[in-house]
C-alpha cells in the first residue's frame, strides 16, 4: 500500500504558488489581447466587404481547427526563424493563446451579434444610423450582455489550455509541478495537489459563471453559446 506524504509539497508550496501566478499571468495576457482581437475578427467576418470577411473567416477557422499545441510549437520554434526576434516561452505563449482564444471569442461575438433581432437593425437604420453606429450603439451593447456566459466559459477553457506552455518551459503551475515532482520524487502528491489546485480555481470560476447565467435567465435575457 502506498504511503501518501504531502509534507514536501507543503514545504515547496511557494513554487506552486509562483506557478499559479504564471498561469494567471498568461491567461490574463491572452484575454487582454484575445478579446479585442476576437471582436475585430468577428466584425470583419460579418462585414459585407468580402476582402475583409473572407480572410477573417479563414483565420478564425484555421485557429479553431488546428491543435493549440501545434500552434504553440510553430510560434516558439518556427516564427523566430522567419522574423528576427528573440523568442521567449512567455512571448510564444502570449502570441499563441491571444490568437487562438481570439478565434473562439470571435465566434462568441458573432453568435451574440446575429442573435439580435432584425428589428433592432431596422429601427437603428430608420432613425438614420449608419451600420457602424448601429453596431456600436444598438447591437453590441445588447449582444455583449447575452454573451457573458459564453465568454466566461471560453475564458475558463483558455485557462485550461494554458497548461500547454509547460511544454516550452514557461513556468506555469504545471511546469512548476513537474519540476517539483522531479526534485522531491513525490510525483503522486505533487500532481494530485496540482490537479486539485486547478480544480478549485476552475470550478470556483465556473460556479460564478453559473450564478451569472442564472441571474441573466431570471432577468429574462436569453444567452448564446
Amino acid at each position: 500500500m502506498y504511503e501518501w506524504d504531502f509534507t514536501s509539497v507543503i514545504e515547496n508550496s511557494d513554487l506552486l504558488w509562483q506557478g499559479l501566478l504564471g498561469t494567471l499571468a498568461i491567461t490574463g495576457t491572452a484575454l487582454a489581447f484575445g478579446l479585442p482581437l476576437g471582436l475585430i475578427l468577428a466584425l470583419s467576418r460579418l462585414s459585407p466587404r468580402r476582402w475583409l470577411a473572407w480572410p477573417a473567416g479563414f483565420v478564425i477557422e484555421f485557429f479553431r481547427t488546428t491543435p493549440p499545441l501545434v500552434q504553440l510549437f510553430w510560434f516558439f520554434f518556427a516564427l523566430p526563424i522567419l522574423i528576427d526576434i528573440q523568442m521567449t516561452p512567455y512571448l510564444a505563449a502570449a502570441i499563441t493563446f491571444s490568437i487562438q482564444s481570439s478565434a473562439f471569442f470571435a465566434e462568441v461575438f458573432r453568435a451574440g451579434i446575429v442573435s439580435i433581432e432584425k428589428g433592432q437593425w431596422e429601427a437603428a437604420r430608420a432613425i438614420g444610423m449608419q451600420r457602424p453606429q448601429a453596431m456600436r450603439r444598438i447591437i453590441l451593447p445588447q449582444a455583449v450582455k447575452r454573451m457573458i456566459p459564453a465568454f466566461t466559459e471560453r475564458a475558463i477553457e483558455l485557462m485550461k489550455t494554458t497548461t500547454l506552455v509547460a511544454t516550452v518551459s514557461y513556468a506555469d503551475l504545471l511546469y512548476q509541478a513537474n519540476e517539483l515532482a522531479q526534485k522531491t520524487y513525490r510525483p503522486i502528491e505533487v500532481f494530485t495537489a496540482t490537479a486539485l489546485i486547478y480544480f478549485v480555481v476552475i470550478f470556483g470560476l465556473s460556479l460564478c459563471v453559473q450564478a451569472v447565467e442564472r441571474r441573466l435567465a431570471v432577468s429574462g435575457d436569453s444567452t448564446v453559446r
Binding site: G119, E122, A123, A126, I138, Q142
Partner: peptide, 12 residues
C-alpha cells in the same frame, strides 16, 4: 420617420 409593427424599441 418609421413606426414598426413590432415597435423595435432599444431595450438597453
Amino acid at each position: 420617420g418609421m413606426v414598426f409593427q413590432q415597435f423595435n424599441l432599444f431595450p438597453h
